[in-house]
Nucleic acid binder design. Structure first.
Lengths: 226, 226
DNA sequence: AAGGAAGTGGAATGTGCTTTCCACTTGATG
DNA sequence: CATCAAGTGGAAAGCACATTCCACTTCCTT
């Protein structure tokens, strides 16, 4: 359905077949568990659900970040792909709106991904490459949408992560008890992006700043470390 | 500066003076610590900083929720008061915008309050009474702002907590590295509230739903419990 | 100034999670 | 089918935090 080959396929890992089978089980379980419980689930629980010992889990994925990026690799690819796809929409403004909704919907459907989209994992090469690709394509998307006249001129690429953080905030509180509330937020946000409405806005963040913000420790915002 | 008496004053607590002094120290320290580190700081750390033993802290405030609501009582009062004040603005739309900005700024200035505004504490009577008063006055505020023509007709009271959750999401990620980003979000949100721009929105949440969402356990969203 | 109620600190206990380590098992290879 | 590198599980150690408990101290009363 898209251009480059999806990063699926049972690529040869050089592992013994039983080990590879375990690796797959771990990934499958991690995806499910992160989706429903968020990326902070105990490593122990993932191991248990996957039917392996914690030792096995740790040997394959020494840090939580390694497991997270491995588990979300394909979703991250899909994320990048969505921007590429949005570029093919004949109506750039419609493409923009659809894209924002679609990504926020991806967040809404996966508690882990909700968080992952607001963080960076500097050591996960492919992962961050996908994010960069998404950003690059998104930048093109907004340029077009501005040129075509739908999108306000002062919208910047960095506004997208801001929207994702806002959506994450709504989702973490409401996803159980009021699972559609995020749509309401996104409705407001998208309307605020329309050129038609534009009033001046506070300055956008510098890209460097956003990067640093998203860099926060994997083990979520731990309180003060003295 | 406002109508009812602020809940400050060294009201007689029936405690021995040394005990009362400790209680005050605990509250002061809790306010500072929650503000900079969020409401999840270890009880132990608050006790240490206040120069008391954990035992003392626990006897005075048996649960974290008790301490949190005690520490934020005056801020909660100020929160409610802000809505009351906003009603005195001769321009209802301006009053609305100022109010939303002001509350979001309160969140930005206090990591603990950021979270507190997205939760309910059913057992803290005064605390929840203040919240209700804020909601009630806010409802009046939006009715006026709609009547005066600035605010879109489909804005509802429940949108405010949604905005607060969104802002909380942005703040938890950016408050260290990019502390002004929340202003950008709020800029978008407020513009989206303008009647001038209004396009149909997804349905708002039911009040009951929002309540349940904000009811989540005090010990933050713990992962899965099996 | 003495007695007792009120208040205190912090050691102790318990829980939940991370992370390491190694004796044992299993699949691949000749 | 024997060998052994690769792989495994789970016990154990360590850490951070919550929460209880009670021998001791401090204030207040008379």
């Amino acid at each position: 359905m898209s251009s480059p080959p999806a990063p699926e396929a049972p690529r040869h890992t050089g592992l013994r077949i039983d080990a590879e089978r375990n690796r797959q089980r771990i990934l499958t379980v991690a995806r499910e568990t992160f989706a429903t419980h968020g990326i902070d689930v105990p490593m122990e629980e993932i191991a248990r659900r996957a039917g392996v010992g914690v030792g096995t889990l740790y040997r394959r994925y020494p840090t939580r970040g390694d497991l997270v990026t491995a588990a979300f690799a394909t979703k991250m690819y899909a994320y990048a792909d969505a921007a590429r796809q949005a570029l093919t929409d004949p109506d750039p403004w419609h493409g923009f709106c659809t894209y924002v909704e679609q990504i926020c919907a991806m967040q809404a459907g996966d508690r882990g991904f909700t968080t992952v989209l607001t963080m960076t994992f500097p050591t996960a090469k492919q992962f961050e490459a996908d994010r960069s690709r998404a950003f690059a394509d998104f930048t093109t998307l907004i340029d077009r949408a501005k040129a075509a006249g739908g999108l306000r001129a002062d919208f910047v690429t960095e506004d997208m992560p801001v929207f994702l953080m806002a959506n994450a905030g709504v989702l973490t509180v409401t996803s159980d008890a009021a699972p559609d509330v995020w749509r309401r937020l996104v409705g407001y946000l998208i309307q605020a992006c329309a050129a038609r409405t534009a009033q001046p806005l506070p300055d956008p963040p510098a890209p460097r700043q956003m990067y640093r913000a998203m860099l926060r420790a994997t083990h979520h915002q731990r309180a003060g470390k003295r």
